[in-house]
Design a protein around this nucleic acid. Sequence first.
DNA 1: CGTATGATTGAGCCTACTCAACTATTGTGG
DNA 2: CCACAATAGTTGAGTAGGCTCAATCATACG
Lengths: 238, 238
Amino acid sequence: MVAKLKHYIDITDAEHKLLGALEKTERSTSAGEEIFAGGDVNKNLFVVKYGWLYTYTNLPDGGRLVVRVYHAGDIIGMPALAFDHHTVNLRAVTKGCLCPFPKSELDVIVKRAPRITALLFTIAAREEAILVDTLRAASRMRPESRVAHLLLGLHARLKITNSQMGNRFRLPLNQTDIGDAIGLTNVTVSRTFSIMEKKGLIERVDGEIILIDLCELERQCDFQDRHAAMDTSWFPSS
Amino acid sequence: MVAKLKHYIDITDAEHKLLGALEKTERSTSAGEEIFAGGDVNKNLFVVKYGWLYTYTNLPDGGRLVVRVYHAGDIIGMPALAFDHHTVNLRAVTKGCLCPFPKSELDVIVKRAPRITALLFTIAAREEAILVDTLRAASRMRPESRVAHLLLGLHARLKITNSQMGNRFRLPLNQTDIGDAIGLTNVTVSRTFSIMEKKGLIERVDGEIILIDLCELERQCDFQDRHAAMDTSWFPSS
DNA sequence: CGTATGATTGAGCCTACTCAACTATTGTGG
DNA sequence: CCACAATAGTTGAGTAGGCTCAATCATACG
């Protein structure tokens, strides 16, 4: 996580030490494992060391909504900071490793490291902007644009921690998961992928996705990369 | 705003003074006025003194998505904290009054008032949880549940600052606005309201909404009140 | 090699959309 | 105060796109 935060601001030794405390505990996850469920008592946040995970909620009609996909360097559980119970479920997609830390450790950061606090605040704000983008795409766009938005979002996210990645990446989600993330059935996801491949927008090779026509993909879902830059101009001095 | 924050934690005189600084500038708004547009340079956040407003974005196909409705005591612009440009548009629904304050004033709070910082952080986290609820309802539920969710959300929000309100409130949004907020057309909103009225779930009198069968409304959209309580247990001492 | 999971494809249906006409309400200027 | 315009809401008819159901094909794994 420190590596990811360094991307945005310089971090002093003292700050580094405070952040290190958040990653002192480790917990490995196996593919498909349920880490916590909505309604569980919520004392911890999690930093992702590696692996893919997602949060989801069940819908009253039996459906399922995949809220957000997480990768190495992400912090899981910010929205739940406001409540003493979890609001969503967390599931590991692949093998991975998490660092749980109690909410209460944040108080030290808030008290002693105003720059880190501001940065975390900003990251939370960005999460909200990303969620609005998701709402835009998943509730109001045609299937092709929804898929495009999901793929571009994952790609932009993965590029931060893996800059020489190119336009190709492994996608460990099945089509039902994808459908639950963008509000389609697995059937429609399948048909949509086929159409996009036929159009020359993407390719699928060995369970990896290749984004062939990035420009057209970005155009059709009005994509904004929320990861590239953040406004740190208002931050206090350290 | 101070009145609203007091709801959750005690506020010392020093903290009160810092917060007061955020509300020293005022700006009145007229009904239908556009306050800012997505892409505008973003230096200010806004505290709502009174009036109704909403943020929205335009969709690539010409549609519109109403993201969030704001009332007295709300802070507008948290998600934009992460960027130097606005990510959405803001429009006033009714006459009202806003207190704009520069982002840079937050740095003083982050440095000097850790409890207030923690509280603002928590409010941002709650906004995210609310947005997930919106995503759930607006992208995946039947029209009736979507309307129910919107009405209950507004009602829960208005109750905080107006505790003896009962189950009746004025709704200054037209059916096109409502549709844009929950992913329906004005036509479907009209039909849905009629059905819900016929079923005895709600009533409409003089442009006001009366929630007749609260339990059934809550049941059918799986409603959670995110405003009632917040977890402040992890906050630092002041 | 057999089983389980995941992906593809086809047929038919259903729901919210579009288009359009009409009614109701609100606001404004003469 | 009335006439007119503009905005908002209602209702009907027909359409279309994504869903459901179901069968088949592909791949991975023990």
